[in-house]
Design a protein around this nucleic acid. Sequence first.
RNA 1: GCUGGCGUAGCUCAGUCGGUAGAGCAGCUGAUUUGUAAUCAGCAGGUCGGGGGUUCAAAUCCCUUCGCCAGCUCCA
Length: 660
Amino acid sequence: MSQVSITLPDGSSRSVPAGTPVRDVAEGISPNLARAALAAVVDGRLVDLSYPLQKDGAVRIVTDKSPEALPLYRHSTAHLLAAAVTNLFPGTQCGIGPATDEGFFYDFVVERPFVPEDLELIEKKMKELATQDLPYERQLWPREKAKEFFAARGEPLKVQLIEEKTEGQKEVSCYTIKDPDTFIDFCVGPHVPSTGKLKAFKLLNTSNAYWKGDARNAPMQRIYGTAFVSDKDLKGYLTQIEEAKKRDHRKLGKELGLFIFHPWAPGATFWDGKGTVLYNTLASYMRDVLLPTGWIEVKTPLVYNKALWEMSGHWQHYRQNMFLIESENEQMGMKAMNCPGQYLLYASRTHSYRELPLRFHEQTPLHRNEASGVLAGLTRVRQFAQDDGHSFLMQDQIGDEVERMLGLVQRVYGDFGLEYTAKLSTRPPDFMGEIATWDSAEAQLKSALDKSGQPYTISEGDGAFYGPKIDFDITDAIGRKWQCATIQLDYNAPERFDLKYIGPDNREHRPIVIHRAIFGSFERFIALLIEHYAGAFPLWLAPVQATVLPIADRHIEYAAGVRDRLKGAGLRADLDDRQEKIGFKIREAQLQKIPYMLVVGDREAAEGTVSVRERSGGDKGSSSIDPFIAAARDEIANKGRVERAAGHPAPDAMRVTSFQ
RNA sequence: GCUGGCGUAGCUCAGUCGGUAGAGCAGCUGAUUUGUAAUCAGCAGGUCGGGGGUUCAAAUCCCUUCGCCAGCUCCA
């Protein structure tokens, strides 16, 4: 028998008979490694331990310390789930069951939807199968035979998958778990060697899903779960989820008195006093960022005649998401986007090429009649306002303009210390316009991204039909990604609205539009900020920046004077003049996450000082009032950024609402 | 919109087998005048999300509707 030469990660090599399974290689290295082995990487490919080595190459054994371990565990646990389900619910059809970033899921076609009690049963069965340490066995079936097998078993979805995924192949790969029913699944693998390796998993929830994610297809039942290499990791994950729930913006919004919702206005926010301060501070901040950089703030109507929506195409494509109104037999629609209104404004006069890029920005409210099931706190609402801008420009200005926009995004997100990811989406199959124009636009977007130093991924074919775009996502407390900032090129709208500018040649030309938002929507951005800061806003954003806490009634007069001086200096200050002990007032102020508590008693009243308590730092000792005000204003100007507070002045003094 | 779950006082939650509803906090009143995370006492507060049904009797069982939550589909 011929020999093959394999190289191990430590650089050593050894020779084994051709056809030797990698399991034996692990065995040959050490019995401990063999016990810990889950799979192997052979020439960069993840394979089963049973994989027979046929040619020379590099071999690395995967154990639970390897980066490949987690997805492997999760995928194998998904199979274990399917085995348990088909065991408990005979006749169940299996769909797909991949590993995800957080765990895994498996989709099934079942007689009746799963209920929570089913999950307990299923998880128990999974544990039972895991205890039996049943091997995952890889089998190569002739393609036609596999199709016949699954067809006979009443699994048409599997037959469909085999047809689509293995076209031209003679053999297809299947995996069995020899449970009482012998669970067989069509799957490329690889898998852990046996169910006994799976020790830390938990089923989390169920939901409905559609075959291939298409709502026109058969509804299926999805079971979500997660798996980790150790019980400790699993517990850690579950605690982390619990912790994250504490910073959920819906919970904090209620506790901090920021906003409420009411059943009579689903998806529309009632901003309470404190929330309104936060909202206005952000709106004002955005103006301060934009107005010096050439953006012109405008306000366009909220309700338009149907004619506008026909021209924009919304009537044809978006009507089911619009709130419609009737007025004197005319059909009107509330705006779901600002663009069409701004186009009318642009088109209302002639523009010279010398004006371009012309930049409109507005913060007026939008209404989208979203399906009830998609509403979610502030992150998905029916009424919201975007920091919505449109830049009208010439083709060769795209690169510079996008670069400036990227600079704005980086600066703004930097001011909040937010983590985000960027994604460039390119020409989709159903694009409009010329390929050459698209290529030029995409090249300019890429070049701008590269120049900005912004890391990004490319999503080929994911652009809008009217132009390529760059999207920015922020992750919420429970790990969901939300699109916030966006930069979208649009070649379609200027055509539809017959937008023009007069070029140097004294002729009419068609401008290009770039849609851009930095926050995305105020509502969603605030939701993510609340979770980002866990409700403890930096001083410049805190709805109440300082609260004065008199020790006894006789100090109220002095305390009120302190509060008034703070207010006079533009600080958002409160006074707690209730007849309560100081510990009680402090506790409440802490729970309200107020940055500064100013305790005043006999000593302070006599000396004209305040005793400063910091939200995070505790008692800071006494201070005269003016120095406290000066320090607070400094902290506000610096947006609470420690690195700047420590000696580096802010590059530009930002104004804050209360100072205006 | 789809599937599942949930909806009890302002908030957080109990409420067993169907027998007409309870706690803590908040609120109000009074006492207390307080030094860095909860002073004490009393009082008041409910169409058990809405509507319909079963029953001698419904927070509890059934139907329906609205809202919320998770996910799916869509999207800032």
